[in-house]
């Protein structure tokens, strides 16, 4: 039910915004809309009670990976960090990059990604695990993580 409503809301948002908006990449644009609406819905659904969703699990993985006792996030803008993440993604091979984005942007399950990439669940988990480690190293080298 929630998914259907999110799709409806996304259609409506697209209809209302295009035109005048003119996204260069339609897929990315629509994905963003869907993601925003889905996250809003998720936030609403989990505001007063604890639930563990695919979205939470994916975030948990990254949160553990990027935990830092000497965080400098207060001094670093998200914009700068976003640029670093994009730079990091550029360095990954296409397959790993797709896995990373599907897992942490689309909140896909390991099984879903395994089907898309035709790998075993374990191989996907491992590749993501190594990607997270690399991300951690990458951000540490650049002073984002203590």
């Amino acid at each position: 039910m929630d998914a259907e409503e999110c799709v409806n809301d996304a259609y409506l948002a697209c209809w209302n915004s295009i035109p005048p908006e003119s996204p260069q990449q339609l897929l990315s644009y629509v994905c963003r809309i869907v993601r925003n609406i889905s996250i809003s819905r998720h936030r609403k659904n989990t505001a007063s009670k604890r639930k563990c969703t695919k979205y939470d699990k994916a975030l948990d993985e990254l949160e553990v990976c990027l935990a830092s006792p000497d965080t400098v996030e207060g001094a670093v803008s998200e914009e700068a960090l976003s640029k670093e993440i994009n730079s990091f993604l550029e360095r990954l091979d296409a397959e790993t990059r797709v896995m990373f984005v599907r897992r942490y942007y689309y909140s896909d399950t390991i099984s879903d990604i395994a089907k898309i990439t035709r790998m075993s669940n374990n191989a996907v988990s491992l590749k993501l695990f190594r990607a997270r480690e690399k991300l951690r190293e990458y951000l540490t080298e650049r002073g984002y993580l203590g």
Binding site: Q25, L27, C31, R32
Partner: peptide, 22 residues
Amino acid sequence: MNRETISNVIGKIDPAYIAEAG
């Protein structure tokens, strides 16, 4: 790094990569 920051940063992944993954 807290969850909100991570979510925000992930939300700003380059559209080209989003399209590629999609």
